[in-house]
Lab assay of single mutants.
Amino acid sequence: LRLEVKLGQGCFGEVWMGTWNGTTRVAIKTLKPGTMSPEAFLQEAQVMKKLRHEKLVQLYAVVSEEPIYIVTEYMSKGSLLDFLKGETGKYLRLPQLVDMAAQIASGMAYVERMNYVHRDLRAANILVGENLVCKVADFGLARLIEDNEYTARQGAKFPIKWTAPEAALYGRFTIKSDVWSFGILLTELTTKGRVPYPGMVNREVLDQVERGYRMPCPPECPESLHDLMCQCWRKEPEERPTFEYLQAFL
């Protein structure tokens, strides 16, 4: 395994491009020591290896001592969030954005069929390849993070704006909380990567959403798509659509 080009840095580690087995181009995620327990990670990795779908980033291998390494397929255009905010983002029109959403829903419909939960679905965790191919990455890892700023769910590192209220408040993460996050991801797509709930801080978002506030229809977004977002944001988790439905609708 060779680490060649550093692609990015996040709160919990770095991402590199490299070569595996001398020939395969891969992405390598390294986790800061202390982010998660190697034992817990190894268990999760076994499950992650079983998830194989064309719209999920394929896991190739893991190094399960500290520092933990995760070796996955390489996606040339990086994260969907950076892609939307970058040069190419300007030229993306609604049909392409909807197609990308459908690809993500397709990957998540598979996660749904496998009775698995992602827990951290957002544009930053979707990767883009050639020809606007989108794949879901980092599934299941969020559960293992041991950082206090994260586990408190009120901490600075927790993605509260993407998280369903029952998950943020009571830790009830299910495929239905993933559906909520998918609704937020749809706003990221239609606004080219704007942060959700602009002008609001995490605490406010939690309070307002509890009181029934939902983001309005983004500019140039059809009402039918906003309606779909609002279905994803129904207060009762069981009233939210399935990913199978979302995939078919898109």
Results as ranks from 00 to 15, higher is better:
Ile70Ala: 03
Cys11Lys: 03
Val117Trp: 00
Trp20Leu: 12
Met48Ala: 03
Gly22Val: 12
Cys232Glu: 04
Gly140Asp: 01
Ala137Ser: 06
Leu84Trp: 07
Glu4Met: 15
Pro38Met: 10
Lys235Thr: 13
Asp227Val: 12
Ser181Glu: 03
Leu42Asp: 04
Arg93Leu: 07
Glu166His: 05
Ala105Thr: 10
Trp233Met: 06
Tyr91Gly: 09
Val5Cys: 15
Gln58Val: 10
Ser76Gly: 10
Ala45Cys: 05
Leu225His: 02
Gly140Leu: 00
Thr19Arg: 12
Gly10Ala: 00
Met17Gly: 15
Ile160Leu: 08
Val128Ala: 06
Cys134Glu: 00
Ala45Asp: 02
Asn131Ile: 11
Asp178Thr: 00
Trp16Val: 15
Tyr170Met: 09
Ile184Leu: 06
Ala102Gly: 12
Asp82Phe: 11
Met200Gly: 04
Trp16Phe: 14
Thr187Leu: 07
Glu65Leu: 14
Thr191Gln: 09
Val128Arg: 03
Val47Gln: 01
Asn21Arg: 09
Gly86Asp: 05
Glu39Asp: 08
Thr242Ala: 12
Gly129Leu: 07
Val62Ile: 04
Val111Ser: 04
Glu149Val: 15
Gln208Ile: 15
Leu225Ile: 06
Thr24Ser: 13
Ile104Lys: 00
Arg172Cys: 09
Asn115Val: 05
Glu149Met: 09
Ile184Trp: 00
Tyr116Cys: 13
Met17Ser: 11
Lys235Asp: 10
Cys134Ala: 12
Val62Cys: 14
Leu132Gln: 08
Glu149Asn: 05
Pro38Cys: 13
Val195Asp: 08
Asn125Asp: 00
Asn125Pro: 01
Cys221Gly: 05
Pro216Thr: 09
Leu189Phe: 11
Glu65Pro: 13
Gln231Cys: 12
Arg113Thr: 13
Pro237Leu: 12
Met48Asp: 01
Gly22Arg: 11
Val195Gly: 14
Ala142Asn: 00
Thr187Gln: 09
Ala137Ile: 00
Arg122Gly: 01
Gln247Asp: 08
Val5Asn: 14
Val209Thr: 14
Arg214Pro: 02
Tyr150His: 03
Ala164Trp: 01
Glu146Pro: 10
Phe243Gly: 04
Gln103Ile: 04
Ser64Gln: 07
Thr163Lys: 01
Glu239Leu: 12
Thr163Met: 00
Arg143Leu: 04
Ala61His: 14
Tyr60His: 12
Gly18Tyr: 12
Arg119Asp: 00
Gly86Cys: 12
Gly22Phe: 14
Leu84Cys: 13
Pro33Leu: 11
Arg52Phe: 09
Trp180Tyr: 09
Thr163Ser: 04
Ser79Glu: 03
Ala164Ser: 13
Gly107Trp: 00
Gly10Leu: 00
Lys161Phe: 01
Glu223Lys: 13
Ser181Gly: 05
Trp180Val: 00
Thr35Glu: 09
Glu149Ser: 07
Ile70Gly: 01
Val209Ile: 14
Thr88Glu: 10
Ile70Ser: 01
Val15His: 01
Asp207Val: 13
Lys50Met: 13
Arg143Ala: 01
Val26Gly: 08
Pro38Gln: 14
Ser181Val: 01
